[in-house]
């Protein structure tokens, strides 16, 4: 993410932007090609691998019995973790997650949690004593930009294919994880005065600010996060919200609603 980018390249991307063009020939509102695979890790209760352009992300969902939080004794728990493995980029170093990874994990988590995507009440085993804890682990395999959207996408896809292993615990039949919503994150990069969806690695490196908007299928917004150090105007924020909702609806219909029917 923090790849040092030559000034020449910067100028090149910027000049393209002025001409309403992008490095890879996309329009400002176009996502790169998406390839989604689910259930590829059989050891996990749910899994999904997304290839967004050349960005590859694998999400595995594990369920374990745990204790509920005292303020929600009848609800399951969601724990989201995101790791920028050194395998994904020469810029990533081994070690505990840096702030960037933590931020992205929390944005993914927030989208799922706040949109009410998982019916947490159905994950309660014994009120106040034991509930299912859903671990969402995001593994970045190759970073070619826009990890956050890919992570949101893969995480929800993995959850939609997750089976709750009740049998293993001797508490009934295995069931699909109860899903109520499909939140999707769409990130817009601000380059110059333009907003463009799904920034590539180079675009991410030179962009001034990114704004991620997680929206639900009813068009409401479940989470937002501004990343980067250049301010946005109110008009830009509102424009970004509309654009993100539009793109999320598109992607949801294209890739995810089919999964739900399947599940």
């Amino acid at each position: 993410m923090s790849e040092v980018i030559a000034t020449l390249k910067k100028d090149y991307i910027y000049n393209l932007m002025v001409k309403e063009k992008r490095q890879d020939g996309r329009g400002f509102k176009d996502f790169r090609d998406i390839k989604l695979e689910t259930n590829i890790i059989t050891k996990a209760e749910g899994s999904a691998k997304i290839t967004l352009g050349d960005t590859q992300i694998l999400v595995g969902v594990k369920l374990q019995i745990g204790t509920p939080f005292p303020d929600s004794p009848d609800e399951g728990v969601i724990i989201t973790n995101l790791e920028l493995n050194p395998i994904a980029s020469p810029d990533f170093e081994p070690g505990p997650p840096k702030e960037e990874a933590i931020e992205m994990a929390r944005v993914v988590d927030r989208g799922i949690r706040e949109s009410g995507a998982i019916d947490l009440k159905k994950l309660c085993v014994a009120v106040g004593e034991s509930v299912w804890t859903v671990f969402i682990d995001v593994h970045v395999l190759n970073d070619e930009g826009n990890i956050i959207d890919a992570s949101c996408f893969a995480a929800i896809a993995a959850l939609m294919t997750t089976i709750v292993p009740n049998k293993q615990q001797g508490i009934g039949e295995n069931v699909s994880l109860a899903m109520r919503e499909i939140p999707l994150g769409v990130t817009l990069a601000k380059i110059g005065s333009k907003l463009m969806v799904d920034p590539s690695l180079d675009e991410e490196a030179i962009c001034e600010t990114k704004l991620t908007i997680v929206s639900s299928s009813d068009g409401s917004v479940a989470g937002m996060q501004k990343m980067g150090s250049v301010p946005l105007t109110e008009a830009e924020v509102l424009e970004a919200i509309d654009l993100a909702r539009e793109k999320a609806t598109e992607l949801r219909e294209l890739y995810l609603e089919g999964l739900l029917r399947k599940g």
Partner: peptide, 24 residues
Amino acid sequence: TQDGEITLLQMDGHLTSEEIKKGL
């Protein structure tokens, strides 16, 4: 900023874009 440019923006919950407009 003093000029009303947004330098931090986070959100969680459930809002429509009209509500966001009003909130801003």
